[in-house]
């Protein structure tokens, strides 16, 4: 076994352990912190897959900001999970069927790292071979994200903008900004 396989397997096992621990937890504070651990392990896995830009985002957004925002929410709502009194049969059935459908879906997917996978034969070769001439920057991820796929990135920014507008509309206290009415 080469070192990459060992690293990948250790990270995946740690990920699975984190999920098991997460499911068994009752304290929301501990759950928020453990999801941070999960994100950080995923970031490690992305680094092992040479996707450093994705790993960077996962570490900063998933492990960093999301944990802080979850903690902020818990500070408002309370630390303990309320035990649901609903029947557990329906949720378990839904999860099992969805999970089975997802696993069935992966059977059609090309193997990990398959050079003939559709994603590697469509536009990716053009980006990889022409980026240094057409765009002229070393990081191909940036040239795809910001130039070739600039329109998609604009969509992502619009989504973040909309999310902020939603949060501010629901929780913001702008109504008090005007002059106090007497």
């Amino acid at each position: 076994m080469d070192i990459e396989t060992i690293v990948n397997f250790s990270l995946l096992i740690l990920l699975a352990l984190t999920v098991v621990v997460l499911i068994r937890m009752k304290s929301l504070l501990a759950i928020a912190l453990s999801s941070g651990v999960y994100s950080f392990l995923s970031a490690g896995l992305f680094v092992a897959m040479d996707a450093v830009d994705v790993a960077f985002t996962e570490a900063a957004v998933g492990a960093g900001i999301t944990t802080i925002l979850l903690l902020g929410t818990i500070a408002i709502t309370g630390r303990e999970q309320t035990v649901s009194k609903h029947k557990r049969f329906l949720p378990i059935a839904v999860i099992t069927i969805t999970g089975a459908a997802l696993i069935y879906g992966t059977l059609d997917m090309p193997l990990y790292g398959d050079a003939n996978a559709p994603i590697h034969t469509h536009v990716a070769p053009h980006y990889l071979t022409q980026s240094s001439e057409e765009i002229g920057i070393p990081n191909v991820v940036t040239s795809v994200l910001a130039s070739y796929r600039g329109y998609d990135t604009l969509g992502e920014v619009a989504v973040i903008f909309t999310a902020a507008v939603g949060v501010l509309l629901l929780l913001g206290k702008t109504a008090k900004r005007g002059r106090p009415k007497q």
Binding site: V52, D53, A55, F56, T57, A60, V61, I137, P138, N139, V141, T142, S143, L145, A146
Partner: peptide, 10 residues
């Protein structure tokens, strides 16, 4: 971000 990992999001 144009030379190393990262960019506006991060």
């Amino acid at each position: 971000g144009e030379y190393g990992p990262g960019g506006g999001f991060q």
